[in-house]
Design a protein around this nucleic acid. Structure first.
Lengths: 343, 343
DNA sequence: ACGGATATCCAAAGCGCTTTGGGAGGAAAG
DNA sequence: CTTTCCTCCCAAAGCGCTTTGGATATCCGT
């Protein structure tokens, strides 16, 4: 049923060469001819055979991903969401995945094997850490890659997509300060991940600008599960001088935090304000919380899609995308923030 | 650097045909010659070019997966773990993935597109529901597939890998009954998934055999997050005639349940017994709970690997695996179970 | 009207593998 | 001593695409 290039060319009375060129956007083909070809493609439903293309071009048409299987990552709620974005976009372009789970200790070997296998045209990297050794490694591998997030402390001369974590939490903190809050807590992600580091920095900066200090007793780092959110919040509330506002690095953490707050008999948005970072997880919408959450929002799925798009465009040399992107998170005010309670 | 078939053949003074046959296990090749070939492969590090193989054989050497993006599935903690198993095994055989996220409503179209694309040799299906319409659909698609789990109510004439959920919870329940428990609660997964249905059935059967009834007030169905585990347990404990034992469909649920129990001031293994199903999630080991958990154990990652193995063997027509497998879960007794408290 | 651009198109050579259709040589059979 | 039959090997034809290296025709200025 499926036609191939040869048949299509015959049908059009053209050579394979011309048809191929028409399809791949080469200039040496008459505009009218190109239209005819495109039309015929539509009518016949012609789809180039990827295997043949791979063989002829040497491209793999697939992107590799080393899936970390360290604790708290592979089973991370956020990971699936990001993956969905990648997959969605990849499938549109008929690209494959090579998913390679790997323990941190043999990550390097895994990357090398993947790059050498010729099975992938590009690699993708996530869960960036400060001074992440993996980026130097990837650079030496001579295979294109894009990083989700960005390292800290290295020259920033590699392609990445990150959100402005510093800015997001700076904005959020400033809002809280403007509302009169002085003691603000932070329930953050793991302390070795760059987004955590930056969010804390953003918060510290906003505080500093208003002559306030970041109280270390009000900062917790942990995996982003709601259990951890719950426990952190509970401990904050038990402190002698409990915070009147709290920032959460994920709505998942916020889920637990909210529970702890309710349990303490406090009212969110009145007794205590809460702002969470919202990765736009479909099953956890901030507007559906009993008290709708004020959030800094940036879709994780969209990020996955964007990275796939860039990776693919890079491989195909189609389209031109910036090499480095920093997305701003929107600060969306809902009911979980309010003026600081008067003593 | 990388050698190809032609070079390898030249090096050996053989034809490509013979080398190819030696490698692919054809009989018409002298045993000694085959050894020489194998030796040369080891020395040169020859790896067949997958693109060329795909083109020549028409096989895709990749397996397709429709990743459901319905609430509570894609971001499921358990999904990543399963995926890791699949990926690990696939990569060993140099197989690719085609990850296709799809909303339930266009799942059918997604499957069809995937099957028709010629980009995958086999499909994989999970999150089985009772009378799942997808298996009839897959059968009509004339593309091999394996199901993780199994449907209920249909003729069971399709390849699957499932664990004996009924048996697992039957065993668990029987143990509790033997320990003197009469009122046993169940914190289960979503009620439309077959594993939930079967686990409840297993529990009911064990109860019935001892003249006990399953009390509907003691059964909750929900997504398997610890939040839900917490809430369910809390509600159970508030009932007038609270249960003395509880079964959880996941250690994630157990996490929440344990929290609720502790909070109620009860001692696990003495005041109340708990048995959870353990999918062997690396970040949530039952032996690391404050009171080590008695569990029914079956590794989700192993299941993923096994399915990949079977799928790949089926495509390569190498090896012979059973078409249908039912794994028994082990009942492992730890400290969270004990005799029912005397009134 | 003519050499040289310019615009369009094509034939054919791969890419690296599998597979078809033999062919040589020796053993078994007649 | 032929004839037949294995056993083991090979040459060559694809698989469906891209790309090189021209062809051919048209158009330009002079």
């Amino acid at each position: 049923m499926a036609v191939n290039l040869k048949q299509l060319a015959e049908l059009l009375g053209l050579s394979q060469t011309t048809v191929s060129r028409a399809l791949n956007g080469y200039p040496e083909v008459n505009a009218e001819t190109r239209q005819r070809v495109l039309q015929a493609v539509r009518e016949t439903g012609y789809r180039p055979n990827r295997a043949a293309q791979r063989l002829a071009t040497g491209k793999a048409y697939s992107i590799g991903m080393v899936m970390p299987i360290a604790a708290g990552i592979d089973s991370d709620v956020h990971f699936g969401e990001f993956l969905a974005g990648l997959g969605e976009e990849a499938v549109k372009h008929d690209f494959h995945f090579v998913l390679n789970p790997s323990a941190p200790e043999d990550e390097e070997a895994t990357f090398q094997r993947l790059a050498a296998s010729g099975n992938v045209d590009a690699l993708f990297l996530a869960y960036m850490r400060a001074n992440d050794p993996r980026i130097a490694m990837l650079k030496s591998l001579s295979i294109p890659f894009v990083v989700h997030g960005r390292s800290i402390g290295e020259t920033r001369d590699y392609p990445f997509l990150d959100i402005d974590n510093t800015g997001a939490f700076y904005d959020a903190t400033r809002l809280l300060i403007q509302l009169g809050h002085q003691r603000i807590a932070l329930i953050n992600g793991p302390d070795y991940l760059t987004f955590s580091i930056r969010r804390m920095k953003g918060m510290a900066r906003a505080l500093a600008e208003h002559g306030l200090n970041l109280d270390e007793a009000l900062v917790h780092h942990s995996l982003m599960t709601d259990e951890h959110g719950y426990r952190s919040m509970q401990r904050f509330l038990q402190q002698p001088d409990a915070p009147t506002a709290v920032l959460c690095s994920s709505t998942v953490l916020a889920l637990g935090a909210v529970r702890a707050i309710n349990q303490a008999g406090l009212a969110i948005g009145r007794d205590i304000s809460l702002i969470a970072h919202d990765d736009v997880l479909p099953m956890l919408k901030p507007e559906n919380f009993s008290v709708p959450l004020t959030t800094t929002r940036s879709s994780l799925r969209a990020a996955g899609g964007r990275i796939a798009t860039r990776l693919i465009a890079g491989i195909l040399k189609s389209g031109d995308y910036p090499d480095q992107e920093l997305w701003r998170a929107e600060l969306i005010v809902r009911a979980s923030t309010g003026p600081a309670p008067q003593k």
